[in-house]
Design a binder for these strands. Structure first.
Lengths: 202, 202, 202, 202
DNA sequence: TGATAACCGAGACGGTACGTCCTGTCTTACA
DNA sequence: TGTAAGACAGGACGTACCGTCTCGGTTATCA
């Protein structure tokens, strides 16, 4: 990879310091001033960088935001995995409660809304998001469900994608549309309802 | 109420023609140029209206969009109701397929994304949306589930809000984040999975 | 005159109270906010009057200002006359010093600049000014000079209009263009120089 | 001075083409549409320039106009001098007739009225005018009078400033206030009256 | 060990849109 | 009919950013 760097030739000279300053500034600024007032000009000024440096390396404001999120998750990469105590319901509740906590965290609220806004209007960014950020996370979730499925705790014919979306979709939606209080209790109710289904059991 | 109209006095002079022209222009424009390029200036020009007339009556671009959606649904109000053939699964599939069709309709895609974007960043607008647009729709959905519940087709202790969000949340989310193809088959899978639950049924 | 009022028919119903309020408001406002920020809207608001009432009775902002000046001079009309002590030079110095004092009076500075600005760009207003405000004043000045001429104190073939303008023109000009300090000494110097001429006497 | 240019640094990047386009547009426009309808927006559009480029370099519309006048006189600078044939009266008449012609020239009428209007309400602009435009012209006039004074054609104790203002003031004033026809005959009368004084000679 | 080419900060540039203010006209309700 | 009030279409204000550009200055590679 390092040797290939030279192949793309121009990227070699890219200033890592500027890149970091820009991403940090973008993330901080969106928090401070909100999505509506986030501007390339403001990011450049805050980062102590020329506007051209942003335009040179990123195709859109959304991509800057996207990279800022990527940078955040860079340290913890490794081989993250969802908890598996054997108690699927408890594990799912724990994970969904964590999701609720993150969505309610004021430090991430505005930046995540901003990123979602951009994704909503930019298919290219949506694809990048699906591949780089949401994809790995979703695979983890699918993996946990797959393990449970193998253990006979989930239906054999269960579509894991649908299952994941049925668990997280309601949360995401409540958060984006502010369609109700986003609490641990809600997370628990979603897990229970999803596992048991809407129909009466037996 | 009609007799009290005179009391509020100034709103009485409001031009209904301008109001309609603005809402129509807003809806049409967001479709043609996209959310990012939707401007108050553009709406005013398209509607043949002074900008001040927009600023006088609406607090934000999002509220204009919101009213434009309200206007759309004005004719069909009456006593809409979700289909009830007795076959809950079939009925839900029909309704979710209709939702999918609407979300995929290019005439509504951009306007709805635009509205959702504004909602995402404006709690006041989110509240208005929840009360005036989403609320009535959700009540219809809850009502259909309530009927099924009474008929013994749904669990007695089911939280209908959670149920509704578990059915529609995944669709909304796929659409907003473009997290996969939004097809009738997907709608069917969501209905089946939600009804049966993730766990093996005996 | 009173009887003819009704002949012009519509003017009969004109509200004198509104007229005075408007003129007073115009004069006061131009002083407070300056010519550049003087607006019909502002005058109407200050006068507690509808905008239409101004547009109905005055053709332009300049005419309102003009009438405001007319109103000021209404009380003192009668048969004003310039001092005539027999000492022409002393009399002229006194009058020009009075002019200087008036031009330096902060209460009249802005309003007079405003009026002059409008005159400068509106021939109709200029004509009205020449006839109703400047004309009578000029006639007084001419009259004083005419008396002096008859007494042999001024050249027989002197063009009194030229004489008046040579005395007051320099003052007006210094004031309008702020082309130097506008003092009593300057007024005296102008009188002396004008009376004696530029050439050496003998 | 040339070497210090780099020190002021940012002004170095100023676009000379834009500057000229703006000044030309301003001068032309004020002629075409008149002072009242002269707008920064209009100047920018006519010059093919962003509004910000005007706001960046000029503090007011008046200063733009002022610079436009400066630009006009730039070519002819050198060592202009008033005619000196030895016949002071003839020379002054020639110069005042030229002034009259210029004031009557429709190409300069509106622009000069506009500039004078701005000067009338902006002391800073008035100072700039006095120093850069009116000052040099006045010095020329004073110089011609000084030469005549040395030749014994003017009174020894004559205040040249007063003399200049007594010659040109009446013209300026007639022009600004449209206080009468501005003709060559008037110019001649002013010269004769000023030279001889109002009093009978002998 | 220069030459040279890309990056960098800075920020001017032509533009678009903002949200506000005012214009002159029109409409409503009252006296 | 005149009036206070104020909505209306329109247009300019002065500001903020957009995305492009040009300017010197600084690396970092190649001749």
């Amino acid at each position: 990879m390092t040797t290939l760097r030279k192949a793309s030739s121009n990227a070699a000279r890219r200033s890592e310091a500027s890149r970091q300053a820009i991403l940090t500034a973008a993330f901080d600024l969106v928090n401070e001033v909100g999505y509506a007032k986030l501007s390339i000009e403001g990011i450049a000024a805050r980062a102590g960088v020329g506007k051209q440096t942003i335009y040179r390396w990123w195709p859109s404001k959304g991509m800057v935001l996207f990279d800022a999120f990527l940078m955040l998750g860079e340290g913890s990469d490794g081989e993250a995995v969802l908890p598996d105590t054997g108690d699927l319901e408890a594990d799912l509740k724990a994970v969904l409660r964590a999701t609720v906590a993150e969505l309610n965290d004021p430090r991430y609220d505005e930046p995540m809304r901003a990123l979602n806004t951009e994704i909503m209007h930019d298919p290219a960014l949506a694809a990048a998001y699906a591949e780089r950020l949401d994809g790995p996370m979703k695979e983890l979730k699918r993996q946990r469900l797959r393990d449970a499925q193998r253990a006979g705790q989930l239906a054999d014919d269960l579509d894991l994608d649908v299952a994941v979306e049925m668990l997280w979709g309601p949360l995401l939606n409540r958060w984006l549309q502010r369609g109700g209080p986003l609490t641990s209790e809600y997370a628990d109710a979603v897990v229970e309802t999803a596992l048991n289904g809407l129909r009466p059991r037996r």
